[in-house]
Amino acid sequence: MSSMQIRENLKSVSLIVLMFVLWEVACVLFHISPIVLPRPSAIFTTLFVQMPALWPNILQTLATTMVGFGLGMVIGVALGVFVGVSRTAYKTAYPLLVGFSSIPKVAVVPIFVLWFGSGTVPAVLTALTTCIFPIVVNVATGLATTEPEMEDVLKALGATRMQVLWNVTLPRAMPYFFASLKVAVTLAFVGTVLSETVASNLGIGTVMMMASSSFDVPLAFAGLFALAFLGIVLYSIFALIEQRVCGWAIRKQDLAMG
C-alpha cells in the first residue's frame, strides 16, 4: 500500500471516529435519553457483552445474504447476458426491468411469506430480488456498449461473432459487472434484514425487532452497528476483487474504494 493510500484510508477512519465522538458528546451535552438515542460507548458495550447471543444471528443474516446474493448473481448474469447480447432484446426488456426494479422490496416480503411461510426462504428470496436488478442492468449495459470501430477492425480480419464476444465484448463488460456486484452485495443485506424484521425467528433483523419491542434500544443499535460493519467488509471484499480483475478500468490513483 502506498503512503498516499494509507493517508486516504486514515482520513476515512478518522471521519468515522469523529462521527462517534460528536455523537457521544451530543448525547452527554443535551442529556439525550438512552431510550431515544443511546451513546455509542453504550452501544459498543452492548455489542461486546451480547456477542455470544448475537453471533448465531449474525451468521444467519450473513449466510442468508450470501445465498441470496449468490443466486442473484447467477440469475442476474444469465438474464443480463440474454438481454444484453441483442439490441432488440435490450430495448424490449428494459421497461420491464425498470418496472420490476422500482417495486419497493418491502412489498414483496408478505407475498414470499404467503408462498413459503416465514423463515429463511423468504429472506433469501427478498435478498435475491433486491440485489438482482443492478446486476442485470449493468451486465446488459456492459454487453450492449460497443465500440463500432473496434468491431469493424475485427470483422475485417474475419473474426466470428464468438471471437468478437470473447475478445472484446466480454472483457469490456467486466467493469460494469464488478461495479454492480459491490452495490448488489450491500443491497442483498438490506433485503435479508427487511425480510427478517417481518417474518423470521433468527437473524439480526429479528433481534432488532425484538429489542425495539422490549425497549432495549442499545441492543437495537448494536444490531445496526453489526450490519454496518458487515456491509463495509463485504463491500471491501468485492471492491478488492474488482480492483484485481479490472484495474485497467479504474487506473492508478482512483483505486480507493468506491
Binding site: 465500440e147 473496434m150 469493424d152 480480419l157 474475419g158 472483457p171 467486466m174
Partner: peptide, 17 residues
Amino acid sequence: EQVGIGMAFQNPTMLPW
C-alpha cells in the same frame, strides 16, 4: 472467404485491458 484485411481508423481503439 476470410481475407484478413488490416484496418486502422483515426481512433486507435487499443483495448485497455
